[in-house]
């Protein structure tokens, strides 16, 4: 059983076809990186996988449960109650963190487990403190997001997502909004998660990071998967678009 499975996903915004039939499967413990130039559709794919955006055609399942099925060549979304169940399987870390500014670091992490999952407060707080230790931020529990650096905020956002114990964790360009000297601390945390066999799908521009950490790399271009495989296969492929993309990055 795949943790995540999506088949032949198509999406248009008006006349612009952003995704032209993308299929993706992720198994337990796998780390999949999605790379590609801006406008290639990778962020849209992530938003569709996390149900922030709807697809026009295709299906989508987590742990074998279908959130979206194909009927008569169109996507049909499951009932709200079913979707609510399915949503428990994944978490998402945003490019711009999207922490709740009016809540302390601790409350950013514990509120959803307490209010949404109705778990015991004492237990959740214990777990949150452990997560903060893991992020190297155990002394920041009572701080507010505005008092922290971008890198610290993003690590809090990762802790917040992990507190709900997702099966799959998505990252949408987690270091793009950070100053270069702060990206390292976030990437280190993600690497740590990979070592713990966390199942992750990461949209990123950090090529060497993707190369190091991923079990599989997917190169997207103009709404299609142009190349996919192990990091070695993709980065050494003779796909012209891939070479062009890597060449541009080197010149930057």
């Amino acid at each position: 059983m795949y943790y995540l499975e999506m088949n032949d996903v198509k999406k248009s915004f008006g006349d612009l076809e952003v995704l032209k039939g993308i299929s993706l499967t992720v198994s337990e413990g796998e780390v999949v990186s999605i790379i590609g130039p801006s406008g290639s559709g990778k962020s849209t794919l992530l938003r569709i996988a996390t149900l922030l955006e709807t697809m026009d055609v295709g299906n989508l399942a987590y742990m074998g449960q279908y959130a979206v099925t194909m009927e008569d060549r169109h996507s049909v979304y499951a009932k709200t109650s079913q979707l609510k169940e399915i949503k428990k399987n994944f978490g998402l870390v945003f490019q711009s963190f999207n922490l709740f500014p009016h809540k302390s670091v601790l409350h950013n992490i514990i509120d959803a487990p307490i209010f949404v999952q109705k778990r015991k407060k004492a237990e959740v707080i214990e777990e949150a403190k452990e997560l903060l230790r893991q992020m190297g931020l155990e002394d920041k529990a009572d701080y507010y997001p505005c008092q922290l650096s971008g890198g610290q905020q993003q690590r809090i956002a990762i802790a917040r997502a992990l507190a709900l114990k997702p099966k799959v964790l998505f990252f949408d360009e987690p270091t793009s909004a950070l100053d270069p000297e702060l990206t390292g601390e976030v990437l280190k945390v993600i690497k740590g998660l990979a070592e713990q066999k966390m199942t992750m799908v990461i949209v990123t521009h950090e090529m060497s990071f993707a190369k190091n950490i991923s079990d599989r790399v997917i190169f997207m271009d103009k709404g299609v998967v142009a190349a996919s495989g192990t990091p070695e296969e993709v980065f050494n492929s003779d796909n012209a678009r891939m070479q062009e993309f890597l060449g541009k990055l080197k010149n930057d």
Binding site: T50, L51, F94, N98, F100
Partner: peptide, 24 residues
């Protein structure tokens, strides 16, 4: 982004409004 974060964390519509949006 505040709404999207709440949605990903499975807040209901009313929880999103009263716990996330309205206090801000």
């Amino acid at each position: 982004g505040q709404y999207e974060a709440a949605q990903i964390l499975d807040y209901s519509k009313s929880q999103t409004f009263f716990k996330i949006v309205f206090p801000q």
